[in-house]
Design a protein around this nucleic acid. Structure first.
Lengths: 152, 152
DNA sequence: TATAATAAGGTCAGGGAAAGTCAGAAAGCC
DNA sequence: GGCTTTCTGACTTTCCCTGACCTTATTATA
C-alpha cells in the first residue's frame, strides 16, 4: 500500500490529463490542496512527468504564472532523448546520422528536418576538438528531438 | 488559462495588426480601455513587439502623438548565412532566436523547424562556456540554414 | 515672435506574484 | 546500517504592473 504524497499528486495530475488532454496548474494552489511545500510539485513533475515517460511541461513565472503539462505527440522521441542524455561521452557523427535516418524512416522527422539535423551535426559544423564535439552533438540533437516530440 | 493584462493587450494589438497590416494607437486611450497605467502599454510593446520578434514600433510625443506598430520586412536565407559566417564572435541566443523567428515569419521555415532550431540553439543545449558557445551556435545555425538553401 | 500651457509619449526603479533550485532532513526499503 | 526516495525551507530568478518624474511636440497667449 503505502501511497506517498508524490504518488497521490501523480494520480491527481494523471486524472486531470485524461479528462482534459492538457492541463495548466497553479503550483501554490496544488501544494495548498495537498498541504505540502510548493517544491514538492516540482519533485513530482521532475520524477514522474519526464520526457522519457512521454510528458512535456512548460511554465511561466511571475504574476499569472502556471505550469502546463501534456502528453508528447511522439513519445518515442522522448525515449531516444533519454538515451542520448544518459551516454556520458556524447555521440559520434556516424551513429548520430544513423539515428537521424532511423527517425526519418519511422516518420518522426520530415525529410527537411532530417537533412538539417544531419548538416548541423557534422564535424565541421560543430567545429570543436574531439572530447567536446561529441558531447555538444549529443546535447544539441537531444534538445532538437525533445522539441519535436511536442509536434507543433 | 490565466490571461494577464499584458496577454490581453498583446492579443488586441495582434488582432488589429492582422486586420490592418499597420496600426497607430493612442497610448492613453488604450490604457484607459484596459483600465491600466499607460506605462503598461510600453511594457507590452517592449516585451512582445520587439524587433527580435519581427515587429517595428515608432512613436511621436506631444499633441497628436501616437505609437505605430508594424511587422518587419522579411529576411532572406543566403544573406543570413553570409552574415552568420562572417561574424567572428558568433551569435548570442537572443539575436539567433530572433533570426529564426523571422525566417519562420517569412515562410522559410515551418513552425516545427523553427521550434527545433530555437531549442537546439539555447544556452543549455549547447552547454559550453561563453566565448565558445556563441561560435558554435553560429556555425550550427549557419550549417542548418545552408542545408535548406541547398535542398530543393 | 517669444513664452507659457497643454498634450502627448518615454524611462526607470521598485513592489508583488508567481515558479525554479538545491542542499539537506526525514522516511522507506533492502 | 547503508541506500534510495520523498519532502521541506531558504534563497533565486522571472514576470507583471504602477507611479513618479522626464522629454518632446503642439497650441494658445502676451
Amino acid at each position: 500500500m503505502s501511497l506517498t504524497l508524490a504518488d497521490a499528486i501523480e494520480r491527481y495530475i494523471l486524472a486531470q490529463l485524461d479528462a482534459a488532454g492538457e492541463i495548466a496548474l497553479q503550483r501554490v494552489e496544488l501544494a495548498r490542496q495537498y498541504g505540502c511545500a510548493p517544491s514538492q510539485i516540482n519533485y513530482v513533475l521532475a520524477t514522474r512527468f519526464t520526457p522519457e515517460r512521454g510528458f512535456l511541461t512548460e511554465s511561466r513565472r511571475g504574476g499569472g504564472g502556471y505550469i502546463r503539462v501534456r502528453r508528447a505527440a511522439q513519445p518515442e522521441l522522448g525515449r531516444i532523448v533519454a538515451v542520448l542524455r544518459s551516454s556520458p561521452d556524447g555521440i559520434a557523427q556516424a551513429p548520430a546520422h544513423a539515428l537521424i535516418a532511423r527517425c526519418r524512416e519511422a516518420g518522426l522527422l520530415s525529410a527537411r528536418e532530417a537533412f538539417m539535423l544531419q548538416a548541423l551535426t557534422r564535424r565541421e559544423a560543430i567545429g570543436l576538438p574531439l572530447p567536446l564535439r561529441d558531447m555538444v552533438r549529443a546535447r544539441c540533437l537531444g534538445a532538437a528531438l525533445l522539441a519535436l516530440s511536442d509536434e507543433r
